[in-house]
Lab assay of single mutants.
Amino acid sequence: MATGGRRGAAAAPLLVAVAALLLGAAGHLYPGEVCPGMDIRNNLTRLHELENCSVIEGHLQILLMFKTRPEDFRDLSFPKLIMITDYLLLFRVYGLESLKDLFPNLTVIRGSRLFFNYALVIFEMVHLKELGLYNLMNITRGSVRIEKNNELCYLATIDWSRILDSVEDNYIVLNKDDNEECGDICPGTAKGKTNCPATVINGQFVERCWTHSHCQKVCPTICKSHGCTAEGLCCHSECLGNCSQPDDPTKCVACRNFYLDGRCVETCPPPYYHFQDWRCVNFSFCQDLHHKCKNSRRQGCHQYVIHNNKCIPECPSGYTMNSSNLLCTPCLGPCPKVCHLLEGEKTIDSVTSAQELRGCTVINGSLIINIRGGNNLAAELEANLGLIEEISGYLKIRRSYALVSLSFFRKLRLIRGETLEIGNYSFYALDNQNLRQLWDWSKHNLTITQGKLFFHYNPKLCLSEIHKMEEVSGTKGRQERNDIALKTNGDQASCENELLKFSYIRTSFDKI
């Protein structure tokens, strides 16, 4: 039985969820670079991206490699990797027998973001014989899940209580170790020597080791999670996991709180800001991140802002960003909400898709409305799209047979046209069989910064309504002859009103 693990408890099935942008060198404390989270699957090609990484700022997932063999891993080693800020997950990587050479110096898994409450997941690794993470000293947050690894031993010899604050939620089941077939031998045991430290858990006094050649490092209890030197002297209180010299914040392997210019500090002093819960960055760093993602459509890219001495992905609820200094300031009234469309555009074809934009005031991208039916549609669209004030790209209304009016965009005031449909149009209306009105132009103002209007096959939309939009939106004169079809717009509506004058002759039985 794995020490510190839980057996036999019912657990939810383990679901495996399925960018080499360097964020800056980590400095003297770390020998390499800070790398983003990685999802490495199918083959070993991307694994080489770990070569210079000291910190993975995010998670590391290595999974679904069915053609790899043990010899493929023999020359692979990433000794610079010290810390993973989120979680480490391995799933069905064939041929991998140990992690001792792959990650010989991995010391800390912070667990800032977890995989279903777990910071370390080893699942269905069919050839893994031992973990071998002999320098792993601290899992700051989260638990361990090690399950269905039929060859995995050296679990009962690990004292997880020396690595985690609590072992109650560890789930370590259905491994070879369960069948008591392992016969784990710690260093020196074969020669009758006791080389590794022994600890007591559940009444068992057991030597602690990761492999037959690597003991588990056990520091004096007084050192807590700070770690200790090879001689057993406690590291500085700002260290986490390990250090090369005692009581020196510049000799830590990793930091308990924050890293700044080669030393570990309790908090980031001005003019620095907390970033990702582990390091200090200056304003320029946060500003660069903001600008890199301002026009990016890459998933996970955030326009970072500053709030409460932190550089964070977005302002919290009730705050909006001051564009001059990136500071989050309290909103006066309802907060603006910028919604970034991942692929640059979004099609609204149902109430469900409209709900995804609920509360958005600025759309960074283009909207395509293609709704053919739905219950209580006008009210639903207004509830979900009615706060949109600005669209950076274009607005396209296409084959939306259920629409009679666009009044559900009740606050839309600006279409920038930074991206144009077919390279020309910022407003595009095609084949809307029941569209009769755009907006009530006596109450609604709309500016279209650039781009043209396109109207074709809107049989109940009168040309007068379209011409009014040209005047109000500032697009009059931009359109070419064929942009607004004269014969297919309003051709099934009563669009022309003329005053009919009647004269009559009164007659009676005795007068003409």
Rank of each mutant, 00 (worst) to 15 (best):
I62Y: 00
D277F: 08
V200W: 06
S77H: 11
E71P: 11
H212K: 04
V305A: 06
R279S: 13
L102W: 15
T221R: 07
G300F: 04
K217P: 06
S98K: 02
N150E: 10
N195H: 09
L88M: 06
L60Q: 00
H236N: 07
E314G: 04
C252K: 01
G142W: 00
L44V: 13
R69S: 06
N170P: 04
K217R: 10
G232I: 02
I163P: 00
E238N: 08
S296G: 13
E168F: 06
V108Y: 03
T211Y: 03
D165A: 03
P330F: 05
L136H: 01
C228D: 05
R46E: 11
C264A: 00
N42F: 04
R256Y: 06
N105W: 01
L136C: 04
G232F: 05
T194L: 12
C252S: 01
S161P: 01
L136P: 00
P270I: 05
F103M: 12
N150G: 12
N43C: 01
E124Q: 04
F283V: 15
C268S: 00
L136R: 01
T107V: 08
F258C: 05
C239D: 00
S324K: 11
P220T: 13
L131V: 12
L260V: 13
L102I: 01
R208F: 15
I62F: 14
L327V: 02
N257P: 00
T157M: 08
F78S: 02
C186W: 04
I222G: 10
H226D: 08
N242F: 10
T157Y: 07
C255S: 00
E97R: 14
C235N: 01
Q303T: 04
C215M: 04
I56A: 00
I109R: 00
K129L: 08
S237A: 13
V121N: 04
F205T: 12
C228G: 10
D169A: 04
P246Y: 05
Q245I: 15
G318A: 03
K310V: 03
A156M: 07
E238T: 09
P36L: 12
I139C: 01
L120C: 03
C209K: 10
G333T: 03
F115K: 03
L88C: 13
N43Y: 07
G58T: 00
Q303A: 04
M137D: 03
L233M: 14
A198G: 05
S54R: 12
E181N: 14
L29E: 13
K148M: 10
S324Y: 03
R256K: 09
I201Y: 12
Y304F: 13
H127Y: 02
H59V: 13
N282V: 03
Q61A: 14
C328F: 01
L63C: 08
F66H: 15
C268T: 00
L29P: 02
H127F: 04
K148R: 14
L50Q: 01
R113C: 09
R279C: 07
N295Y: 13
E181R: 05
L44C: 05
L120V: 04
L174I: 10
Y304K: 06
D169F: 11
A190Y: 04
L332N: 03
T85Q: 12
L60C: 05
L29R: 15
I222Y: 09
V200M: 05
H236K: 02
K224C: 05
Y134S: 09
F123A: 15
C328W: 00
S98V: 01
P79C: 02
G132Y: 01
M137L: 08
